[in-house]
């Protein structure tokens, strides 16, 4: 029993890291603009789907297909920003209208995917096809190591980007005070587009990492987006590291709920965590970003 629980905690950490990446995607856009992008799940879904299409239809090897998919999704992020978010942003729409519009965009992307790719679930091969490692009596999948390694790498790169590149610093300036940033000559609207591209790429990457252990289909986006959103709230909205920690907490809680209470309790656990944090500590683990 102990072994089973420990094993599921491990897999929970893997899935949680993916939730964390999605949560960071929420934070990147939120910090640059104050917008909560409810179409985040579409990026996650498209990451897995496009990689699958690249491998099967075009016969590309996995790394190439994955890079291509991330690039395409990042561009779609900019497209979303241009045709949906930008007009509303310019008109000074309320946050609710922005949420509604991005949620509608999520549905549009979902349906287009369904029409073009069908509703059959698809999957990706695991990145390293070897039997699981045996450590202290636990079986550790290579995909788990890939997820942890890649997400750690992404977080380090993001940290470097925000702390030591000019563009990264400009984005941070926007998150602190948009008007002051504009006065310093930072093009706030360009930063917004960049934030959508970055966030979309993060989502796609998360989708590609998780797909080999599960599956992907046109409708997996919303559940992933909700998990990522919960991760962001648990971490304190707008704090990328907090979102990652929140994602891991959520993944472990879900894994424990599945093994101890049954598979049907997966979402109950996620929602309980969301409500718990919203009511008891709405500022999250690390406190608010600003």
């Amino acid at each position: 029993m102990f072994n089973l629980v420990a094993q599921s905690v491990l897999s929970g950490i893997g899935i949680g890291a993916v939730y964390g990446l999605i949560g960071i995607g929420f934070c990147v856009i939120y910090n640059a603009s104050g917008i909560v992008n409810f179409a985040q799940g579409a990026f996650v879904m498209l990451g897995g789907m496009l990689t699958n299409v690249g491998m099967i239809k075009l016969g590309l090897p996995l790394p190439l297909a994955a890079i291509g998919a991330i690039a395409i999704v990042a561009m779609l992020g900019v497209v979303l920003e241009r045709i949906v978010v930008r007009p509303l942003w310019n008109r000074g729409s309320t946050m609710f209208v922005m949420i509604l519009a991005t949620l509608a965009a999520q549905i549009v992307v979902e349906r287009i995917t369904q029409i073009m790719a069908g509703d059959q679930p698809r999957t990706l091969p695991v990145f390293t096809d070897l039997p699981p490692l045996r450590l202290f009596g636990f079986a550790i999948n290579f995909q788990f190591l890939w997820i942890l390694g890649c997400s750690a790498l992404v977080i380090i790169l993001l940290g470097l980007f925000f702390s030591s590149t000019k563009t990264g610093k400009a984005m941070r300036a926007c998150s602190i005070n948009r008007d002051a940033a504009a006065l310093q000559g930072i093009r706030v609207s360009r930063m917004l587009a960049l934030a959508f591209a970055l966030s979309a790429a993060l989502g796609a990457f998360a989708g590609i990492l998780i797909t080999p252990t599960q599956y992907t289909a046109f409708n997996v986006g919303v559940p992933f987006a909700i998990s990522g959103f919960i991760a962001a709230i648990v971490g304190g909205f707008g704090r990328p590291l907090g979102a990652f920690a929140g994602g891991i907490l959520l993944g472990v809680a879900q894994a424990l709920a599945i093994v101890l209470l049954g598979a049907a309790f997966k979402n109950v656990a996620a929602l309980s965590i969301l409500l718990l944090f919203l009511f008891v500590r709405p500022t999250g683990l690390l406190g608010p970003a600003k």
């Binding site: 949906v84 007009p87 509303l88 008109r91 729409s93 209208v97 509604l100 519009a101 509608a104 965009a105 999520q106 549905i107 549009v108 979902e110 349906r111 287009i112 029409i115």
Partner: peptide, 18 residues
């Protein structure tokens, strides 16, 4: 294309005729 059309219509309305 129904849900697709609803979603797209909603976006257009939100932008142009809120």
């Amino acid at each position: 294309y129904q849900d697709l059309a609803y979603g797209a219509a909603l976006i257009v309305i939100l932008i142009y005729a809120p």
